[in-house]
Design a protein around this nucleic acid. Structure first.
Lengths: 252, 252
DNA sequence: CAGTGGTCTAGACCACCAA
DNA sequence: TGGTGGTCTAGACCACTGC
């Protein structure tokens, strides 16, 4: 049977392929329990560890969720679509809307904390600050409203000197959000830069996103500039890589 | 053990953390060989499999490259920065430049193959074609010139009816590339949409990119539209997730 | 050739969940 | 409380690399 492309595909890959295909066919629906690793071991005549490696693949891809006493259950897999450009377009916050309303799946909010602290070393350069200068930090955790599932961690850094005393330092930034307030302060955001890369999560990130350690996160870093070219905000985001599609639409 | 700091952090995670820190400190430079798994097993007093799990983490993050008879060697890790927007700006191809010249790391070359085939099902909708209609496919493989390292697979789909007989169906599309030719055909690209998501590679993708099966790829799908809003090209790209930073800079 | 990593087996203990 | 997955051990064989 084997012998086509790369000689023999490992057993755990074949088992994973089978399970994926079964999920694809609808044989296991969202919430259904997959066969346990011991059952798979018997069925495929492999050692339990080999069966587990197969399940691990599905977990990395976000197809199943495994819990210790429970089994492996199929996830309702509908990735969020994040519109990187339209969502922070001026029409959004200019009209008093939250930037989230530009997304297909708006269901998100939660757990905002505002603080003042010395600028972290890796942020200082991006904001044009010296070591030791103060920034306002706004940390948020976004959770899907219905499923209770956390999908994003976010921390914004703004120069303290710029936003001190403004509504940006309050948990509720008011109509139009942070960008509308920045505009009122004379620093209208006119340009943004987003950098996306992928890496494995830290223990804290994995816990905060309720995701396995072996699944990568997308680190998204947005820098926003005013008309003078000054960086007024750096937003570091952490996304579950299996939960998101990033979307950028632009004119040439 | 001595310190109870880790509490419940798995041993293989601790070992991986140690190795990452050592690489960070420069203790192991690019090309250096890390201790083998048996050496690690002795050093940390764990089973060989546990040591291997640690090395697997470094391999997923792209810090080391493992080969069967050789050991684990530290990678020269300089992620490529891909400018999603500027690189296909009209000034680029309009001036006769290759779109790659917009990137910091232009060192990329090819293996182009052009073909004509029925449109794949998942592409048909994006191009507004019916099942069975023909498309021109341009498949390429991009390799870092110096290191010989493959970093991207790419397949473009264009409606056959649109490009039949043009230079787009030749391997060398001429000055300014495909987009300049599309403009000459009366379908000047004016708008683009890029979708990025992450998943584990297929066996073919992993082989084509010379990367491990357990490290995710970034699937990047670009659709390009002309002034009439017609989709004239769909480009499906596969990127090594450890090798790329995606960069989108835009006005609000 | 000796040594390496990749896969696999056959056990074990533990933390945790569900019935 | 019984069964689950998460971690770990102690072996094994094979494919491959470098000498």
């Amino acid at each position: 049977m084997a012998g086509e492309t790369g000689a023999q595909r490992p057993k755990y890959q074949r088992i994973a392929d089978d399970l994926k295909a079964a999920i694809e066919r609808g044989e296991y629906g969202p919430g259904d329990r997959l066969p346990g690793e011991s059952a798979l071991a018997v069925q495929y005549e492999v050692a339990p560890l080999t069966a587990r490696q197969a399940l691990k693949i599905l977990r990395i891809e976000g197809l199943v969720e495994t819990k210790r006493g429970a089994g492996a259950r199929v996830i309702t897999f509908r990735p969020l679509r994040r519109h990187g450009i339209q969502r922070i377009a001026r029409e959004q916050w200019g009209a008093g809307k939250s930037i989230w309303s530009a997304d297909d799946d708006r269901p998100t909010a939660i757990e905002t904390s505002v603080d003042t602290a010395p600028v972290p070393a890796h942020i200082a350069g991006m904001l044009g600050l010296e070591e030791g200068e103060l920034v306002c930090t706004r940390s948020r955790r976004f959770v899907l409203r219905e499923e209770q599932r956390p999908v994003q961690l976010s921390t914004s850094y703004l120069p303290y000197e710029l936003v001190a005393g403004s509504a940006i330092m309050r948990v509720d930034t008011g109509e139009g959000g942070m960008y509308a307030r920045l505009a009122e302060l004379g620093h209208t955001p006119v340009r943004a830069k987003e950098e996306a890369r992928s890496r494995l999560p830290t223990a804290e990130e994995a816990e905060g996103l309720a995701m396995p350690l072996e699944r990568p996160v997308i680190k998204l870093c947005r820098t926003v500039f005013d008309a003078d070219g000054r960086a007024v905000e750096v937003n570091e985001m952490t996304l579950d890589s299996a939960a998101y599609i990033l979307d950028y639409t632009f004119d040439l």
